[in-house]
Design a protein around this nucleic acid. Structure first.
Lengths: 337, 337
DNA sequence: CCCTTAAGATGAACCGGTTAAGTTATCGGG
DNA sequence: CCCGATAACTTAACCGGTTCATCTTAAGGG
């Protein structure tokens, strides 16, 4: 009920002594309006405090100027202590704001979440849908794309019935740089704490570890994690059990690296003296651990911005939107390795 | 252009052999429809994959079923490493999702941000506006309320021309518990690192510190911070300069406490041996500092949920929505004090 | 001075729903 | 058997914009 007694186009037209059509053209900045009339209309708009009704406008233009961002929210992990989603939101938000589009946030935690998102998009509530970090082979992006709705994913989608444009970072390259740094530092028993294997980020970082280690002719040692600090703690304990002599760990997230760090300290290991450790993300926390964490920086905010830009081009029906964009990662060397 | 060739009410009506109005009533679950017709219509809906057009619907109902959440985003601090906003978003999101409303996120970083938000709301794009953490005497909430738009704030607004409903936490009570805990532990030179004094949260936590200390007959020692880790580091250095003999610090945020902890360690102080320290927030990080941080827990997610519930009641035109709700805080005792 | 042309404004037909008022069929009571 | 009440559906009038075809008017050319 927010549009109660608000002035309509009709009211402005009456006051300015012109037709509805003319007011509409003035409001939308059409060039074929005489300057004198334009001024009269603008004054009437000013005086009445006229603001166009969005629903009426969308009804005919078929555009809402708002775009959805879908967060998986699996197991409430989304915002627990994970700075990935906030960073994505910030990047996306900044870019959309510059383009004067609105960001609609949706979380698909509930079982019926997928259906809700689909309905929402099909109902024309938004002009496009962006996905932040897909879990597993989620069929939703492809399903929406099939319905003609512009879709962009952050992180390469595993399921691509119709291929969906995506933005990702160079996981493998970053991991390779990290592992090579450990090797160059003389480490020979390099373990990894892997991310969840139902997410491309988790999978690719593990692959990167394996390939680089194999190339160096060194043995693998893998423990499973899920990007959280808790899982880092548990995985590190597991690794120490399995190989007390290990001299380096690559953790697939900063949070897991932080957890591992605590476990190593509790186990009496010096970092980086006895065991070197490298994380992935470059969250702010990595500058405040003791020792400060060497890590692979991924440009999350930039990924968000890029995703938003792709979406805007898709909506503008730009014929040659790149099907994928991979952003570079960078090894940030601090004290832990 | 997401609603291209999609079936309309009209199409469903033709297929089912009834009028548009009847289909509308079936879709909206009216009771005055014969079961036989209802089934026929539902089948037609199913077969055509009909989804009501949101714009057309809002145009007449004057409802959008989406609600805005405004984030101030001052100085990019919003999502840097601060888990306050993510927690609010999660709480609000969960509650709105349960009510089948959509969350529209807006950041008012740009100078024209305020005007954009106002226009957006007045245009009827959302049914109500929630503010997460007001800075200073922001006139926007009151301005919107004056226009008849439902508004709820998280954190008591300083400016209340027409008073706006709000949800806040018991800052003073939490701080009092913290400071009393320090006093009870025998601390006598208790400093504080205050939050920004243009936010109610910063102001009230400082007042709480002052009052409790005065009641205990102890001297005050205040350093300025802005809730960030960096400011905690700087403020702690400042405090050590001014009183090298201090034996306790209450930091108005966990992040500042964390920064202070690092500085104390660098200065050779034992925590809690030489100096006790208590934070405020109970972010996850406080369980991973060394030593683990004693802190005041504030139910941020719950505040978000509560704010959303108030908004829903406001929209439903519930006559007796409480003008304010203050949630309790709780001292969580760990190792640092 | 008349005709063509173009600029600029208007009238009216949508867009796709909701809902008040009107119509038709059904049924019980007198 | 007729009448009014009731149930269930249809008709049509909105909601508030956009836009295209049409009309008006003034300027320019021969």
């Amino acid at each position: 009920m927010t549009t109660r007694g608000r002035p309509t186009l009709e009211a402005v037209a009456r006051r300015a002594g012109v037709s509805r059509a003319t007011v509409s053209r003035v409001v939308n900045g059409s060039t074929t309006v005489a300057a004198s009339i334009r001024d009269v209309v603008n004054q009437a708009v000013e005086e009445l405090g006229y603001v166009p009704n969005q629903a009426a406008r969308s009804l005919v233009t078929r555009q809402t100027d708002s775009i959805a961002l879908i967060l998986p929210e699996t197991a409430n992990r989304v915002f627990s202590d994970d700075l990935f989603f906030p960073a994505i939101i910030r990047g996306v938000g900044a870019e959309l704001e510059a383009a004067d589009k609105q960001l609609v946030l949706m979380m698909t935690g509930s079982p019926a979440g997928h259906h809700r998102v689909e309905r929402y998009a099909v109902a024309g509530h938004v002009d496009g849908v962006m996905f932040a970090s897909i879990h597993g082979a989620d069929p939703l992006p492809a399903a929406l794309a099939r319905k003609g709705i512009p879709v962009v994913c952050s992180g390469r989608p595993m399921h691509e019935d119709p291929p969906v444009p995506y933005v990702d970072v160079d996981h493998a390259g970053g991991v390779a740089a990290a592992v090579r740094h450990l090797v160059a530092g003389g480490r020979r028993r390099i373990a990894t704490i892997a991310g969840p294997q139902d997410m491309v980020a988790g999978i690719e970082r593990l692959i990167g570890y394996r390939q680089t280690l194999r190339a160096a002719g060194l043995p693998e040692l893998v423990a499973a994690g899920d990007f959280t600090r808790e899982s880092g703690v548990a995985a590190m304990r597991d690794l120490l059990d399995r190989d007390p002599e290990l001299d380096a760990v690559f953790a697939a997230s900063d949070l897991m690296a932080h957890g591992a760090l605590q476990t190593l300290r509790a186990a009496g290991r010096q970092v980086p003296g006895d065991v070197a450790i490298i994380g992935f993300d470059d969250f702010e926390i990595s500058r405040y651990t003791d020792p400060q964490l060497t890590t692979v920086r991924q440009p999350i905010g930039e990924a968000g911005r890029t995703m938003a830009r792709q979406m805007l081009r898709l909506i503008a029906e730009d014929p040659d939107v790149p099907p994928s964009i991979v952003l570079p990662t960078e090894l940030i060397i601090r004290a832990s390795a």
